[in-house]
Design a protein around this nucleic acid. Structure first.
Length: 770
DNA sequence: TTAGATCGCGCACCG
DNA sequence: CGCGATCTAA
């Protein structure tokens, strides 16, 4: 290799010129720029990961950085793994020693290393949002804060916001001094909550960032050490950083600290609800005088049609840096729109279309279905199951949030951190040991008097005047944990031993609740995850394992998505791409979400969310909605999303139910919706407040989207003369059939005189006689 | 005092 | 429809 760099030791490094080969001029500039601050405004699909990885490789190749001087921050572990992988491909062994991780992982690593500085031990626990709420619930009760109509959820949100803004309890109380009793109470709860976490040797999610900032501010020598170490900090998805994350970056880059590269796109900022501050990116040049800005506008992902739609939608946001994505991948297919009468019809459309795509050779793993809220996945799942389509859901009730998994983790957490009262409360009575609320309250009061933990209190069960049964249960639990902590078995065996000797697995096996069977299966799955961890990290500790599972994100579970359609929320979709994308539920109240409509800036954020969704699509995009959607227990009528009107009509081919006059502009309907298609009456929905509406209206539907009561009568064959029974229309006689196989349509004369065409595979019918 | 059953409310997005 | 608060039986 003829190397431009003069380091003899770096024979495995690529040539600096090689690294920019095949990059466009802007990408190349972003890779080669050397200066204190660089902002790469990277439109969707503009190759930013490529720029980041090549830039890191370039820094090393030109001798501007050692591996250990690089800190690259991504948004998810999956993104970090991918970046590590790609940097590894470019650099080989040279890539070792870099920190490529999420904000949270990097901060945990720092906090564990420096735990002694703030009176924690390095085995501290990490509380998730649910843990926080449980603690607050107890505190709200204790302080009778419910008279102020304070809820755990609400207070948790306030505390989270404060932490993201680097406001601590004292600072908050100072600003609210006296005047407002509710604010005072919130401040007190905040203070107590902090005390509780400290006693338990625990941090919550927001602490991970905020406490690292406080650490750096309180211990300048510690901060200086990290400033010396990280000479190059690179931050991906910069538009989604919050104030605390911004402060952390500043701490690392100030006073001749690291050079800073940030990559982001303000049009994809979708995390305002957790404190993301769009100004971090929009005012980057002010924050870092002399910063260089590079725009990446060429998109390598999507057809021009898809980009035109995305540009049109996002163009309705004001106050943005105008950029226009372009692609040389060609016009591509038109976007397909579909209007269903119900969420089931909408789901049926998705399933039918997936079937058709599959027939054309599209792989399931190339298809993704997005929705605004997790609740929407249910109807989709139903249809996918009926349609025999393999799918997987990212997020939703995540694996590590399942009660039984959290229980298993709680056992392990107590071993790692016996001060963690929260974990102890969780499993002290699971399985049932007869230790109820009253007994726990007694233990807690003893713990408070003696300044110890609940676990310590358990050790003194004999002295606390409990009955023999309770004493035995308490000492037994204490001994169980003590034994586990003293042993030295690998953690997968430790986990199994805890679940077995605690009686947890036995209780599940003895239960007659059918769900407990799948809980036991989940625990087996968990144990194999632990075994894999041991395999992958022979030197990994229990705390390492607990840290890893605490920080997994929904999208981190995508890896083995082979052969399945992927379902996820629009938020989870960020950073991903798929040849085929469905975006469902394009209705007012869903997208934009009803909550967002009332918030300032809410609509703009929802628009960005749709923009993110659209720009995930490479070749084909489907947009769908349902005019009636069961929500909050009952059905409710909906109106098409305002965003649909922002997409140029000529880009979309609409199918499905005819829309009311108040719906999309007429130009949105294509003639083809008037095609002759099987007719079915709409389910006679409850009065939706509009008496003028005919009770049964004829709708025109996408082929296959036939009825709300969908079945899969796979293989059912009927022919003229057969008698059938329909769940809604009663009995009737088949007059004739058309089509064959899954497309078999029967014309039926029902006994009440009605004449219907039914798609045999899906209609709720059964054959009575030949 | 605990455990199981029933009732009733509320129901984004996430590392 | 899922979860938590509340009721009731032991």
């Amino acid at each position: 290799m003829t190397s431009l760099n003069f380091h003899d030791f770096s024979t495995s490094l690529p040539d600096a010129d090689e690294l920019v080969r095949g990059l466009n001029p802007q990408q190349r500039a972003a890779v080669e720029y050397r200066g204190a601050a660089l902002l790469v405004v990277a439109g969707a699909g503009s190759g930013k990961t490529r720029v980041l990885t090549h830039r890191i490789a370039s820094l090393l190749a030109t001798g501007d950085a050692w591996p250990s001087q690089v800190l690259a921050i991504t948004f998810t572990n999956k993104a970090a793994a991918e970046m590590r992988d790609r940097v590894g491909t470019l650099l080989g062994r040279e890539a070792q020693g870099m920190w490529i991780s999420t904000f949270h992982s990097a901060c945990v690593r720092i906090l564990r290393a420096e735990a002694e500085h703030f009176g924690y031990t390095s085995g501290f626990s990490i509380y998730d949002a649910q843990d926080s709420r449980v603690i607050l619930k107890r505190l709200i009760k204790k302080y009778r804060a419910d008279v102020f109509t304070l809820t755990p959820r609400g207070v948790a949100a306030k505390i989270s916001k404060m932490k993201n803004d680097l406001v601590d309890a004292d600072a908050y109380l100072r600003t609210t001094s006296g005047s407002d009793p509710v604010a005072r109470m919130i401040g007190e709860l905040f203070r107590e909550y902090e005390a509780e976490l400290r006693r338990a040797n625990a941090f919550d999610f927001d602490d991970l960032i905020a406490q690292t900032v406080y650490l750096f501010r309180a211990f300048p020598d510690v901060a200086e050490r990290y400033r010396q170490r990280f000479r190059h900090v690179l931050v991906d998805e910069y538009q989604d950083t919050n104030r605390a994350q911004y402060a952390l970056i500043r701490e690392l880059t100030r006073d001749g600290g690291a050079s800073l590269t940030v990559v982001g796109d303000s049009d994809q900022s979708i995390y305002a609800f957790r404190g993301a501050d769009i100004r971090n990116i929009s005012e980057f040049e002010k924050d870092f005088p002399g910063a260089k800005t590079i725009l990446l506008e060429q998109n390598y992902r999507s057809s021009q049609t898809i980009l035109d739609a995305a540009n049109a939608v996002i163009g309705n946001n004001t106050d943005r840096r105008v950029k226009r994505l372009w692609s040389d991948l060609g016009t591509g297919e038109r976007i397909q729109g579909f209007v269903g009468y119900t969420a089931h019809e909408e789901a049926q459309f998705v399933v039918d279309t997936i079937g058709a795509l599959r027939d054309e050779g599209t792989r399931y793993s190339d298809i993704a279905v997005f929705y605004r809220t997790n609740a929407q996945s249910r109807a989709l799942e139903d249809m996918l199951i009926r349609g025999g389509v393999p799918y997987r859901i990212l997020g939703g009730t995540r694996f590590y949030e399942r009660a039984e998994i959290k229980d298993a983790l709680a056992y392990l957490t107590i071993v790692a951190n016996p001060n963690d009262d929260q974990a102890l409360r969780r499993v002290i009575n699971s399985p049932k040991r007869g230790i109820g609320d009253a007994s726990i309250a007694q233990l807690a009061s003893f713990a408070e008097r003696t300044g110890g933990s609940l676990f310590d209190a358990l050790g003194h069960a004999e002295e606390l005047g409990f009955g023999p049964k309770l004493r035995q249960a308490m000492s037994g639990f204490h001994a169980l944990i003590t034994r586990a902590a003293a042993g030295s078995e690998p953690l997968d065996e430790l986990a199994r031993n805890l679940l077995e000797s605690s009686g947890y697995l036995a209780a599940l096996a003895a239960s007659r609740d059918p769900q407990d069977e799948s809980r036991a299966e989940n625990l087996e799955e968990f144990l194999s995850v632990a075994a894999e961890f041991v395999e992958a990290h022979p030197d990994g500790t229990l705390v390492d394992f607990l840290t890893e599972v605490s920080l997994v994100a929904a999208v981190d579970e995508l890896d083995d998505a082979s052969g399945t359609v992927s379902l996820m929320t629009l938020h989870t979709a960020k950073g991903l791409e798929f040849p085929v994308v469905f975006i469902t539920g394009l209705e007012e109240g869903i997208l934009p979400h009803a909550m967002a409509i009332q918030e300032i800036g809410g609509i703009a954020e929802e628009r960005r969310l749709l923009y993110v969704g659209i720009t995930r699509a490479q070749q084909r995009l489907y947009l769908s909605l349902a005019l009636n959607r069961a929500q909050f227990g009952g059905p409710s009528a909906s109106v098409p999303s305002r965003f649909l009107e922002e997409i140029p009509a000529e880009l979309v081919h609409w199918g499905g139910a005819r829309m009311r006059r108040s719906g999309l502009p007429a130009a949105h309907y294509s003639r083809s919706t008037q095609r002759e298609q099987p007719e079915i009456p709409a389910r006679s929905n409850h009065a939706d407040g509009d008496a003028a509406q005919p009770k049964r209206r004829v709708q025109r539907v996408w082929p296959g989207a036939l009825t709300t009561e969908v079945r899969n009568n796979e293989g059912l064959v009927v022919s003229a003369g057969d008698r059938i029974r329909h769940t809604a229309f009663g009995e009737g006689t088949v007059q004739a059939t058309t089509g064959a196989g899954p497309k078999l349509v029967a014309q039926v004369l029902f006994d009440d005189g009605a004449h219907k065409k039914l798609l045999v595979r899906l209609a709720p019918i059964e054959k009575i006689s030949d």
